[in-house]
Amino acid sequence: MLRAVYKWVDERLDVTPIWRDVADHEVPEHVNPAHHFSAFIYCFGGLTFFVVMIQILSGMFLAMYYVPDIINAHASVKYLQTEVAMGTIVRGMHHWGASVAIVMLFLHTLRVFFTGSYKNPREFNWIVGVLIFFMMLGLGFTGYLLPWDNKAYFATKVGIQIAESVPFIGSYLATFLQGGDMVGATTIPRFYALHVFFLPAGLLGLLATHFILIRRQGISGPL
């Protein structure tokens, strides 16, 4: 039955080459932790992706309760954390996951750097990776404001002051981030939109590029 359904779809859409392309490739021994324990350093990239998936999923559930305005933001987070079933777990996954993602991403960057895997022909994928790093830092910065507690508010104020001190474009940058001339009612929806739409869209695009390039070029050989 299942086979018949697959055949019906495959006849029309020719899906076999698509998934065979993802599935059918050989993984060399030097990156396989089952053969060499030290190959666990090659897991950092995959684990970063895994944490990003955790972030996306937990974030989608948080968005069911979170209200991005200065009056209700803090109250909605508090409600989520104290009243909603499993709320504190889901928010915990998102909160700690943010730090863990940065740590894993950092470890992955170190692995690629010190194994010289960024070299010819993988220069472009390295640049994509650095952009992913910036994207993640941007997600961390915009997400930090959303609970709207004192820590969030004052840290964001300092962050925007830093942005403002950039020569020439600083004041425009600050106005763009704040949505006005102070951190307040217009800042939260702005950071929320950046955090859940703009930056994740950019991140997913970059991740897709990252993975397609890995598939194209294969993993770098043993040292």
């Binding site: 803090h74 909160h95 004052f154």
Partner: peptide, 14 residues
């Protein structure tokens, strides 16, 4: 995640 619940301070007070 289960050992450390995420921190939430008082509401922002400029």
């Amino acid at each position: 995640v289960m050992a450390e619940s995420p921190p939430l301070g008082d509401i922002a007070d400029p």
